[in-house]
Design a protein around this nucleic acid. Structure first.
Length: 257
DNA sequence: ATGGTAGGAAGCCTA
């Protein structure tokens, strides 16, 4: 079972890239972030024609998450539990082929002296709490998405320059570690412990050409999922295309059980 | 070199 996460930065602009990529890779499940689309405006047909089921939590202009799956999708949550009044479309969770798949778009949090950063940290606290609840079920769980956190200095091209950024801030990293310490495994790091690799390159200042990137898109696995991990990758192909997203897909493969 | 680019919406905000 091949599962990917990809922040597409507008599904309307990127649908052709997405169609091409899933054809090329035969991905079974794709977690999507930054759709920037309402559910009604989502271009379903080209993906349904390829045999994908689609579950969406869309929103106009900003955010928006969704799941594509060759298997049936049983939606469990359409918002991250723990807040009554979170208006931002950043979370969808479903059971797919007996795996609990959680698609998240964690708040960016910049600038750090604003309410955006406190919102990010509070959102991470809710995520940790929910991840603990899920952990206790002892199911295969995949927490995947745009975490907007570089876990360590190995995951950013300029650690000193980003030291005060919300993506590398000690408070963001501490919460990311707490999430892992619940018992989740970073799929990429599990198989590539020493590897510099990025999943995001800013559009500005020629970052892509200079390989000035950050690794902020992650797949975190519960023990029951991690035990089935056979392969993981960051596919830089889509980032090099014409009019790309600023993120590229991260994927993993779980052995069928 | 304190900018730069991209997307969506409306004449700025988010990333």
């Amino acid at each position: 079972m091949k599962i990917a996460t990809w922040n597409v930065n507008s599904i309307k602009i990127r649908v052709a890239h997405l169609v091409e990529w899933v054809k090329e890779t035969g991905m079974d499940v794709v977690l999507l972030q930054e759709l920037k689309s309402t559910n009604d405006a989502f271009p379903r047909e080209p993906l349904e024609d390829l045999g994908y089921n689609i579950a969406l939590v869309g929103q106009k202009t900003y955010n928006g998450v969704g799941i594509l799956s060759r298997y049936p999708i049983d939606v469990e949550y359409q918002a991250l539990p723990g807040s009554q009044d979170d208006e931002q479309a950043r979370y969808i969770e479903a059971i797919i082929n007996r795996v609990r798949v959680c698609c998240l778009y964690l708040p960016n949090g910049n600038p750090i002296d604003s309410e955006k950063f406190t919102y990010k940290l509070a959102w991470m606290d809710r995520l940790i709490a929910h991840a603990r609840t899920l952990f206790a079920y002892e199911d295969a769980v995949v927490l995947g998405g745009d975490f907007n956190v570089c876990p360590t200095d190995e995951d950013v091209y300029d650690p000193d320059g980003f030291a005060g950024d919300a993506l590398c801030h000690p408070d963001s990293r501490a919460r990311y570690r707490s999430l892992c310490h619940v018992g989740y495994t970073d799929a990429f790091r599990a198989l590539y412990p020493q590897h510099h690799a990025y999943s995001f390159w800013d559009y500005q200042a020629g970052c892509w050409n200079k390989d000035h990137g950050l690794r902020i898109d992650h797949l975190l696995l519960s023990p029951q999922a991690a035990d089935r991990l056979t392969a993981v990758g960051i596919d830089k192909g889509p980032r090099g295309k014409e009019r790309p997203s600023d993120h590229t897909p991260v994927w993993c493969e779980l052995e069928e059980r």
